[in-house]
Design a protein around this nucleic acid. Structure first.
Length: 854
RNA sequence: GGGCGGUUAGCUCAGUGGUAGAGCACCGGCUUUACACGCCGGCUGUCGCAGGUUCGAACCCUGCACCGCCCACCA
């Protein structure tokens, strides 16, 4: 036993972080059986960004659960990962080293980036990935330091990165399995496309943004040969797509347009004859009730185009500009090709936005624009990382079959334990709203390559229909540098030779396999059997549609199981204006600075007060409160431990009552923790602890110093020690540093490997007594404490001034309690005498104070 | 348009049928041999609005309003 004279919080983070690392306190014990394992699918933070207070918040939540489970006796499998896959890293590496990735280049093992990047140098994909690893390594060290300082009980020997070789191999292997089973397929089709990044994107990466636009009322003349002669007017926000128009469409029941079905109309300016078609998706209340179908203005156009078997007249190119068009061709059969070419010549090569301005001029001049455009604000789809609206561009892409598994995936969602439960609705919402298979290919350079090549025929055409899959024993591989069996490098890109698939996978295609990556799927079958399916996926609620959903999909397809049994969704951290804290708003505080200022325990206290799924205000005040709690733990523990002898049987009523309340607390908090309601655990434990300090400690202070003899002191000392041990362990997940510090004063080993307290353990030290009677006495004692304190405060009498007498009028049973309590109360309140009589009304009155010379 | 959550003291939030709570803030008092990073006490509310069920509603039901979020085939 060694209790410091002046305990302090400063330096505890560094001291215990080092100690835990040295002792392997959080090392996963893989010799334990599956039933004893609790495995956690940690979200890998993006290393090319920076960690902010929101990360500190949610990662603390996971750690609370990990620590609880560890103390419950589980072998906790708690790795950390780094997400260095994807666009953010690609951009950062390009800028930092001044390089560009060119997948057609061969790997150069001796390549070193220039010290001072001048103009961008092209490097091969493997070289690019090497540079990524080099740069992210530094970031990862900083991240690891922050996590350790925060006190995350991660096993750092199992760290992974989403672009490392193991992750690439898992990602490619899973893809090959899907390919073999026909669950991954390649098709050339209209796809959501970002014109700046020049890549396909998935439905899950979309977001709507409100942007200004305008309704343009456009005249379409009816083609000759039909009885009707008056023109049709449509309204569109994208007049620049008139050259891409393939039909008009109205609702089948719309009386205004029924007579038009079956007739043809002529597109303004370009003179292309297009049919008028009925389709139930057309909304009579929108615009003029008749819409222009273009290839492709939005996803509805794609549906109409497909279901009405319309031709393709795509004009938007991959870079977002208008392509060249031959108005005499079969594809664009203009009735006046010369006029069409004249107009279109002014549009060709322009971006969609500039083309719109131009065509409005043209329409005005030609008299095809009715009235002025009506400005509106409407929701437009954007790639979540992009700056310009998405276009729909036809391209060859890989897809994973998703739609046909909607029902089983919904069932998986129902099998999963959601914390909080209502988050399941978001999953259902998303699954029910899916409108296509998952597009997993990206026209980017940095990422996991598709493990396939394509033969090139003798005419030099790439045969996409017969991909050559890599062997599973060759993974990870890169088709831009590896050569398929039976070919030589010299045949790359040559007629009769082969070419590698140039694309990389969507980052979510790899991230959706984090359980397989960390659990050692196909790499370490023994580990996999013990850790998969995992126990917990902690994550933020905004990526249910991506990370959570995709992970469920992949596990369903590959293993026919859920990837984990529980999903815990954290909320966001809101700034004082109730907005999500984000870097762009410039209101992010440096996490390490917060930890230094308020102590890791203080910051964790704030984080732990945010209930699962609930957005929480950033509040340094709560961190201060947490720090005060940690300080109180130090001081109260010092008091409990410094005169801890003699010990003896716990047979004083107030001692027993305090412990019985504590036992009830253990029951309640254990249940709450099992339900992932850590916030309640903290709140209840804290309330108990503070009452323990303010009432119980004051009540037994005199007695434990021996004022009522050794037996009385023994009961108090034993109760204090038992209660301290339990409270420290209840608080250990929340305040790992201060509780470990105190534990080290008087216990062996780490508190974080100690056993979570049980009700039986507390009950076992209580000697005799009857619960109701003990509690009644304790309650009466706290009431007397309160009343006398109140009157002393109102009388403004310092505590050092003794109270000569307190008169009590109350019921007989309370008077009976006084016999056992009087000595404790006298000492705690500096009362010289109590005088109790039976009667009504009940009253506790301070009769007078001893005169003290000033 | 559909869905989910929220609305309780100045602030941050507990409280799922039985006399409205905590912390912070504020006010007053206190060197008290664990702690002034402390202790004691005090003040503070039409529980968003309107109906309904009930002996009794912050809590259950219906409708509405506002805030936030998720989703959607918004020409």
């Amino acid at each position: 036993m060694s209790v410091p004279e002046k305990p302090a919080l400063e330096g505890l983070e560094a001291k215990w972080t080092a100690q835990w690392e040295q002792s392997g306190t959080y090392r996963f014990d893989r010799t334990r059986s599956r039933g004893d394992v609790y495995s956690i699918d940690t979200p890998p933070p993006t290393v090319s960004g920076s960690l902010h207070v929101g990360h500190v918040f949610s990662y603390t939540h996971t750690d609370l659960v990990a620590r609880f489970q560890r103390m419950r006796g589980k072998a906790v499998f708690y790795p950390m990962g780094w997400d260095d896959n994807g666009l953010p890293t690609e951009r950062r590496v390009q800028n930092y080293y001044g390089v560009r990735c060119d997948p057609s280049l061969p790997y150069d093992p001796s390549f070193q980036p220039p010290a001072k990047p001048d103009k961008p140098i092209s490097v091969s994909r493997p070289n690019f990935i090497e540079l990524c690893n080099r740069l992210t390594h530094e970031d990862e060290k900083a991240f690891e330091h922050l996590w350790k300082t925060l006190g995350l009980s991660v096993d750092w020997s199992m760290t992974y990165a989403t672009i490392d070789k193991k992750s690439q191999a898992v990602s490619q292997r899973a893809f090959l399995h899907l390919l073999q089973r026909g669950l991954a397929y390649q098709v050339e089709a209209p796809t959501l496309w970002d014109v700046d990044f020049k890549t396909a994107v998935a439905q899950a990466e979309l977001e709507d943004r409100e942007v200004p636009g305008a309704y343009h009322r456009i005249k379409f003349e009816v083609a000759s040969g039909f009885s009707r002669t008056e023109p049709v007017f449509i309204e569109t926000t994208r007049p620049e797509l008139i050259p891409a128009c393939v039909a008009l469409v109205a609702h089948p029941d719309d009386e205004r347009y029924k007579p038009l079905f079956g007739t043809d109309v002529i597109t303004p300016l370009f003179g292309v004859r297009v049919p008028v078609k009925p389709h139930p998706l057309a909304d009579p209340s929108k615009g003029s009730g008749i819409a222009m179908i273009c290839t492709f203005g939005d996803v509805t156009d794609v549906i109409w185009w497909r279901e009405l078997s319309l031709p393709v007249r795509a004009v938007i190119q991959a870079d977002g500009t208008l392509r060249g068009v031959d108005w005499t061709s079969q594809q664009w059969p203009s009735t006046d090709a010369e006029r069409a070419s004249r107009y279109y010549g002014e549009l060709k090569g322009l971006s969609a936005k500039k083309a719109q301005a131009k065509i409005v001029e043209q329409l005005k001049a030609s008299g095809d624009l009715a009235g002025d455009p009506k400005p509106i604000t409407h929701a437009v789809k954007f790639y979540e990382k992009g700056d310009r609206p998405l276009e729909i561009v036809t391209s060859r892409q890989w897809f994973i079959r998703t739609i046909e598994f909607r029902e089983p995936l919904l069932e998986r969602g129902r099998q999963l334990q959601w914390h909080p439960a209502y988050m399941q609705a978001r999953y259902e919402n998303w699954a029910n709203g899916l409108n296509g298979d998952w597009c997993v290919s990206r026209q980017r350079f940095f990422g996991v390559p598709f493990p396939v090549w394509y033969p090139i025929d003798s005419a030099g055409r790439i045969d996409h229909g017969h991909p050559i899959a890599a062997g599973e024993d060759t993974l990870p591989m890169d088709p831009s540098t590896d050569v398929p069996p039976g070919f030589t490098e010299a045949q790359r890109g040559k007629p009769g030779g082969f070419t590698g698939d140039p694309d990389v996978m969507d980052t979510w295609a790899t991230s959706s396999l984090t359980p397989q990556i960390v659990c050692g799927w196909s790499r370490d079958p023994e580990l996999f059997a013990k850790t998969f399916p995992m126990d917990l996926r902690p994550q933020a609620h905004d990526i249910i549609r991506t990370w959570l959903f995709d992970t469920v999909l992949r596990a369903h397809l590959e293993h026919d199981s859920l990837p984990w049994t529980n999903a815990a969704l954290s909320g966001w951290v809101l700034d004082p204006d109730r907005k999500k804290m984000s870097k762009s708003k410039g209101n992010v505080v440096t996490p390490l600075g917060l930890l230094e200022e308020h102590g890791s325990d203080g910051v964790r206290y704030w984080a732990a007060s945010g209930r699962p799924g609930t957005d929480t205000a950033f509040d340094t005040n709560q961190m201060k409160v947490g720090r005060r709690l940690a300080m109180k733990v130090l001081n109260a523990s010092k008091f409990v431990l410094m005169s801890a002898e003699p010990k003896g049987p716990i047979k004083w009523a107030v001692d027993r009552a305090m412990l019985r309340t504590l036992a009830a607390l253990v029951t309640e908090t254990t249940e709450a923790f099992e339900q992932y309601d850590y916030a309640r655990v903290l709140q209840r434990t804290e309330t108990f602890f503070w009452r323990f300090c303010d009432d119980y400690l004051e009540l037994v202070k005199g007695r434990r110093y021996g004022e009522q003899g050794p037996e009385a002191a023994g009961s108090a000392n034993s109760a204090l020690a038992a209660a301290l041990s339990v409270m420290l362990r209840l608080l250990a997940p929340f305040l790992p540093f201060v509780t470990e510090e105190v534990w080290s004063w008087w216990q062996q080993g780490s508190i974080h490997q100690a056993t979570w307290p049980t009700t039986a353990e507390v009950d076992a030290v209580i000697q005799g007594g009857e619960a109701a009677a003990d509690e009644a006495k304790y309650e009466w004692a706290t009431r007397v404490l309160f009343e006398v304190r109140k009157q002393r405060s109102e009388a403004k009498q310092p505590l050092k001034v003794p109270i000569t007498k307190v008169t009590i009028r109350t019921d007989a049973s309370s008077i009976g309690h006084m016999k056992d309590l009087e000595a404790d109360l006298k000492a705690a309140l500096r009362v010289q005498a109590f005088e109790a009589t039976a009667g009504e009304p009940q009253e506790i009155v301070v009769a007078g104070y001893e005169a003290v010379a000033s």
